[in-house]
Amino acid sequence: MTLKTLSILLMSTLLLSGCAVNNSMYYWGDYSNTLYNWRKDATDERAVEHKAELAIVIEKSEAKGIRVPPGVYCEFGYMLLMEGDMENAASFFEKEAAEYPESEKFVSFLLTRCRESNSEEDSGDAQNN
């Protein structure tokens, strides 16, 4: 076997295996597992785990220079919303709309929710005072 045949063989093997492994356009990390665990066992601990995984997906995707998967900014924002962090929640919802323009309707629905919980909190404070 000549060196040339060998290198062609090697190249094609590499190419083929490359196709087999790298056929997804997004980085998902352990997304489905942490979502499932949280769905099955709706505790704060599981929510924290899922939120941490979302943060990893965002960080790794941005570092790789690839698009963050659809919905992930939104989901992360939603976790912040549940923690009462309206301001940061809103900024992640806006990131989703910037990355995926077709999410605009859904995002504006979420932002309305954000503002509603904000004003509920304000009126709550007013009553307490």
Binding site: S24, M25, Y26, W28, Y31, S32, L35, W38, R39, H50, P69, P70, G71, V72, C74, E75, Y78, Y100, E102, S103, F106
Partner: peptide, 14 residues
């Protein structure tokens, strides 16, 4: 994930 990988925008399931 597989639905998004098919090129669609998916409303986050959760």
């Amino acid at each position: 994930p597989p639905l998004a990988e098919m090129g669609y925008y998916v409303i986050p399931v959760g």
